[in-house]
Write a protein that binds this DNA or RNA. Structure first.
Lengths: 190, 190
DNA sequence: GAATGTCGGTTGACAGCGTCAACCTCGTCC
DNA sequence: GGACGAGGTTGACGCTGTCAACCGACATTC
């Protein structure tokens, strides 16, 4: 494996294991079997390394969503599968999830990273559109509706990840809240 | 003014001006006119200082929401005013907003901070409940519905703050998206 | 085939950070 | 009047990101 990839992988593992603070260039270098300064031969600085981690993670997500999108399922089931994908990701890799969707630097970045992020969203938007065509979601610009739904899951996950705002009662589970939202959004079929 | 408050105020100003990274204990101490180590006589560590900033910020928010809640307006207008409050806060103090709602340490904290956060949410829940009683929102446990709506605004603001996911098209404005959500949620009045 | 340059790696240094330890200087209370 | 604690200081520590200098291997060019 190339050193670039080994560095990215090491950074991702450190991120998953110990949160963003654990991703020090020295630790990454050491985990990849190189010196504390070798990462600078591959990435401009720490932010660039994290951006690379974000890019490959977005690519993974996009691929998983593409698989769901192509699968033979009802649109609504695809939508649920996609939402579950996000929820699982947020729970299994919370620090990485934050890097992808809750990080100022990730957001500010462009290039590869932005493209991968847009790709991911495009899959999601397409599935939402399928649901609209099947009359399982109200008619509205699919981008807007997709943003809305994504924002809601994201917001719920953020709150869950924070353990914030009355964790026991009310929003006992993100899944339950999402079901309620989708039920409320569902046009009453004739 | 007591040194405690001066430190908190200085930290808040640095946070607003330069983001979380700008809040170094040394800079805070200097801005408050004390030495680089004086903050330790008032706060256990950097996290505790940030938690204090979060607590006073939550208190401010809760107070503003209480004012709205008590005002003589229709429930829906109160709800809109509250949502606008969040949007304005997120835009005027983005770093502080992140500290309040997007910060692992803030979330993990308890005590004063947690109480203030719950207080803030309780105002919001109450306003949502008023809307339900006025038949402007569907019937569902008010806590769940409030969480849902808050999560959506929060998610939209997070995306906006990130500049992420197709910033130009679709979710052109958080306000527009929220209006769509509320319109979709509104029970068809007889 | 020698010279050259670039690429990926090293070691060593720097300042800035959070934090700890030691010390000092008051005002307060037996 | 002496003990003492609260709030302040200075100084040090190790860790961090980053920069600079050096160094070998390999490809390219004359």
């Amino acid at each position: 494996m190339t050193t670039d990839k080994r560095l990215i992988e090491a950074a991702a593992e450190l991120l998953d294991a110990g949160g963003e603070d654990a991703v020090t260039l020295r630790a990454v270098g050491h985990a990849a079997g190189v010196s504390h300064n070798a990462p600078y031969k591959h990435f401009a600085n720490r932010s660039a390394l994290l951006a690379a981690v974000a890019a490959v993670s977005f690519a993974d997500l996009a691929e998983a969503m593409a698989t769901i999108r192509k699968s033979r399922r009802t649109p609504t089931k695809k939508l649920m599968a996609t939402l579950n994908l996000f929820m699982d990701y947020s729970r299994e890799h919370p620090a990485r999830y934050r890097l992808l969707f809750n990080n100022r630097e990730t957001a500010a970045a462009g290039g590869e990273l932005k493209i991968k992020a847009l790709e991911t969203f495009e899959h999601f938007r397409s599935i939402v559109q399928e649901c609209q065509q099947a009359n399982d979601l109200p008619s509205a610009p699919s981008e807007t509706l997709a943003s809305l739904i994504f924002a809601t899951v994201h917001g719920l996950l953020a709150i869950e990840g924070n353990g914030q705002l009355h964790p026991e009662k009310g929003l006992s589970s993100v899944e339950a809240s999402m079901k309620i939202l989708l039920a409320l959004l569902a046009p009453s079929k004739t």
